[in-house]
């Protein structure tokens, strides 16, 4: 009997970082906190290693690097290696026993949600931060497609950038501890981020919420100008900036696509006041719990009603400028506020 390699989110927590990677551990921690997280499970790094061993992909990769080690520092060779290794991994199908286990979990999830061939997101979950291995597949339906996407996420550990990075850090090129998150796709009405600090000034008295119609990808990637709501933690006053939102990310038949925002929604706020205050309430609660400003991703489900429609997909310590780029300007801003009281 092989080691356990699939975990439901409620079995996980922050301590499971090395086992299932950061993203999964975080989803587990959020579940533990009672936050509404899209239901799903995690594939641990043991799953990855078991696959590498049983499918023979591991050996092939080892020997490839062994043969080509001398030339690996050349960028051209790294690109070639990436292509070759990803081909090796993606050409292997999941060993039988593993495939059965994965299908079992997927079916349980479908059953729980009452939807056969439930649309899920398959996301990489690295145990260490590594650039260029953040492959994510959205709107994945059916067990065959799921198996394929899981191996593709594993393969994404061997992008050229990831290879170069491991080389530079003198890490084992052939190894890449990577977990995978499989979670229900939320049928997003709108989505975005919330920070419990103003990242530019380090002002901890404010919460900033940004969002757009559709999936959160458009906000996270920074390609569009989202709606922005800056809420004062103490008094709840809100500065709202509604942007003209022209594009959004939606499901395609498979995967996602960028579509135009319908005219009547372009200049409408993507969140109503109830949804906004619920986002702010939970974000500040999480901040209080961890005692550190949070950077979180939220999604509002189109099919459910408030407040059950608010899902969380990410919560991590916020990065913000602690040593102010410009303390003088910040002081000037603070001074201007005393005239508003």
């Amino acid at each position: 009997m092989a080691k356990k390699w699939i975990y439901w989110f409620d079995e996980l927590g922050a301590d499971f970082n090395d086992l299932v990677g950061k993203k999964c551990a975080n989803l587990g921690e959020m579940t533990k906190l009672g936050m509404r997280v899209p239901p799903g499970f995690a594939i641990s790094v043991d799953g990855y290693e078991q696959f590498m061993e049983e499918s023979g992909a591991g050996k092939e990769i080892q020997s490839y690097f062994h043969k080509n080690s001398a030339m690996m520092s050349q960028v051209g060779k790294q690109v070639e290696a990436s292509r070759e290794i990803r081909r090796i991994i993606e050409s292997k199908s999941l060993p039988n026993e593993m495939a059965q286990e994965l299908r079992h979990n997927y079916q349980t999830l479908c059953h729980q949600q009452g939807t056969p061939d439930l649309a899920v997101a398959v996301r990489s979950s690295g145990a260490v931060s590594m650039p260029g291995q953040m492959e994510t597949y959205l709107n994945v339906r059916g067990k065959t497609e799921l198996e394929r996407k899981v191996t593709q996420v594993w393969a994404s550990a061997f992008t050229a950038r990831a290879i170069a990075f491991r080389l530079e850090k003198k890490m084992d090129i052939a190894k890449a501890p990577i977990g995978v998150a499989v979670l229900k796709m939320v049928n997003a009405k709108c989505a975005g981020v919330v920070l419990t600090v103003l990242p530019t000034t380090g002002d901890l008295s404010k919460v900033v919420v940004e969002g757009n119609w559709g999936l959160g990808e458009s906000v996270v990637s920074g390609e569009i100008t989202p709606d922005q709501f800056i809420v004062d933690k103490a008094c709840g006053t809100c500065e709202t900036t509604i942007s003209q939102k022209t594009k959004m990310v939606c499901y395609g038949t498979l995967g996602t696509r960028v579509t135009r925002v319908p005219d009547e929604l372009k200049c409408a706020p993507c969140l109503n006041p109830d949804e906004l205050s619920e986002i702010v309430r939970i974000a500040t609660d999480v901040e209080t719990y961890f005692n550190v400003p949070q950077d979180m991703e939220w999604v509002i489900d189109r099919d459910q009603s408030f407040p059950a429609n608010l899902y969380w997909v990410q919560a991590r310590p916020a990065k913000y400028s602690k040593v102010k780029q410009n303390d003088s300007q910040y002081l000037a801003d603070l001074m201007s506020r005393i005239f508003r009281m």
């Binding site: 003088s328 300007q329 002081l331 000037a332 801003d333 001074m335 201007s336 005239f339 508003r340």
Partner: peptide, 18 residues
């Protein structure tokens, strides 16, 4: 007018801060 003056204030007060 208050809002307009506030924007200007943030620039005008800077020399004294610096």
């Amino acid at each position: 007018e208050k809002q307009r003056r506030e924007v200007e204030f943030r620039k005008a007060i800077l020399p004294l801060i610096k």
